[in-house]
Design a protein around this nucleic acid. Structure first.
Length: 413
RNA sequence: CGGGGUGUAGUUCAGUUGGUUAGAAUACACGGCUGGGGGCCGUGUGGUCGUGGGUUCGAGUCCCGCCACCCCGACCA
């Protein structure tokens, strides 16, 4: 892909009110554009990142036998009246008949009811990746807390509590893999069930100063708790292994709940078991804030020059920068395009900075935009058929034969 | 939802006690130079000063309402 065709526009000035690194860097890099408080457009580069995150999520949800669906964002108020959640004040209500979905228990449960006609249909797990609407009193921190955001929400139905318990643990493992593949270290922390459930739920938290939550955790055994409910404090001893507890700010990137029969009862879902007796299935629900996850990745991976995307979610894996003047630039650009073709054929996402800009500007943008690998092609290096290879997060660069670039990239992918 | 603050060019900002034709940087367009870390020079485009009212000979500037946005707090699935 050519830079001038990729819909990329960087800007020098950060928004004056950027209150977090993700807001500042994503806007400067032209990944997103703010439209209102807590509402963003995703521009070509930002959308590419989102798509890569979604691919990871889809693969991992597939691994726990979940099926993807897409339910409407516009939902009937009637359904919410059945669960008493029609009065929740963060809900946007376009009119007296409809609610913009802020969670989808009220939609997925009636849907599952149609589908679940036999115990053989259980367990059933459905997920969607969809825009959610929540009228937050105060949106903040870029895409970490918006009024409109993208969420992966999944709902499972089981014949027994044991079935749910087993599945819950499987999903927990899948969640760890999702965050790990995004380059993040997530802690599973005990939290309150909120309005969903009286049981303890689990949040997945990533340590970062931009976070709104605080957790206490044990580096030794991995035990962690949200300070919201914890009686423990940093500096005290871990209740499990007596190590000293740490206390850090964190972002909640996911959460999972055991819902029990609250929703299946509200919608009168009953499934005949093997004996022909009708039973009410138990439910679990599992969320990942997809756009929040993207913001968290930026909070976790940036330096003074810009973003440092982890390989699996980088909008482009490699940026090729041809430099030189006049005819020399044309020669470099030609070589860059040749290299692009070779790499693309190997399935590598490549961007060629074909702009007629100063080298400094191109380097600056490459750093800001955070492509993991940079290959510079100049008359100097071209003499030996080489380019300059540099990893975004490393200081030093090295020269490399252009024909070797492909295998070098594949080596670290 | 309480307290505080800000709205001027695409963006970041200046604009004196109210006083002609509202400025800069950056971005953008064109030309020239430059060519390994956001380079230089020149020319040009771009503004109903958030919005509605009021005071005044005269309002970007003063007063009131409304709206939007930001910060602190409350809330947060």
């Amino acid at each position: 892909m050519l830079f001038t065709r990729a819909g990329i526009k960087t800007q020098k000035n950060a928004p004056h009110d950027a209150d977090s690194k993700n807001a500042e860097l994503l806007v400067k890099g032209g990944f997103i554009k703010r439209e209102m408080a807590g509402v963003y457009s995703y521009l070509p580069l930002g959308l590419k990142v989102l798509q890569k995150i979604k691919i990871i999520i889809r693969e991992e949800m597939g691994n726990v036998d979940a099926c993807e669906v897409l339910m409407p964002a516009l939902t009937p108020l009637e359904n919410w009246k059945k669960t008493g959640r029609d009065q929740v004040d963060i809900a946007y209500k376009p009119n007296e008949k409809t609610v913009l979905g802020w969670s989808h228990e009220e939609m997925v449960t009636p849907l599952a009811k149609e589908f679940l006609t036999s115990w053989k249909d259980l367990p059933l797990s459905l997920f969607q990746i969809q825009t959610k609407f929540r009228d937050e009193a105060r949106a903040k921190s870029g895409i970490l807390r918006g009024r409109e955001f993208i969420m992966k929400d999944m709902y499972s139905f089981h014949q027994s509590q044991e079935g749910l318990d087993t599945y819950y643990e499987r999903v927990k493992e899948a969640y760890f893999r999702v965050f790990q593949r995004c380059g993040l270290i997530a802690y599973s922390i005990e939290a309150s069930g909120g309005e969903f459930s009286n049981d303890i739920s689990h949040e997945f938290a990533v340590i970062t100063n931009a976070g709104e939550d605080t957790m206490v955790f044990c580096k030794q055994c991995g035990w962690a708790q949200n300070t919201e409910i914890s009686t423990q404090k940093g500096g005290k001893k871990c209740p499990h292994c007596a190590e000293t507890l740490d206390e850090k700010k964190c972002v909640e990137v996911g959460n999972i709940f055991k819902l029990g029969k609250k929703y299946t009862e509200a919608f009168d879902v009953q499934v005949p078991n093997a004996e022909g007796t009708r039973e009410t299935p138990v439910m679990g629900c599992y969320g990942i804030g997809v756009t929040r996850l993207m913001g968290t990745i930026v909070e976790a991976f940036h330096d003074e020059n810009g973003i440092c995307w982890p390989l699996p979610v980088a909008p482009y894996t490699v940026v090729i920068i041809p430099i030189g003047r006049k005819e020399e630039f044309e020669t470099s650009l030609l070589e860059a395009k040749k290299l692009e073709k070779t790499l693309s054929e190997k399935g590598i996402d490549v961007l060629v900075d074909d702009r007629d800009e100063s080298p400094g500007k191109k380097f600056g943008d490459a750093d800001l935009l955070g492509f993991p690998i940079r290959v510079v092609i100049s008359p100097k290096t071209l003499e030996k058929g080489e380019g300059e290879w540099k990893i975004r997060t490393e200081k030093e660069s090295k020269n490399i034969l252009l024909e070797k670039v492909g295998e070098e990239v594949l080596k670290i992918l």
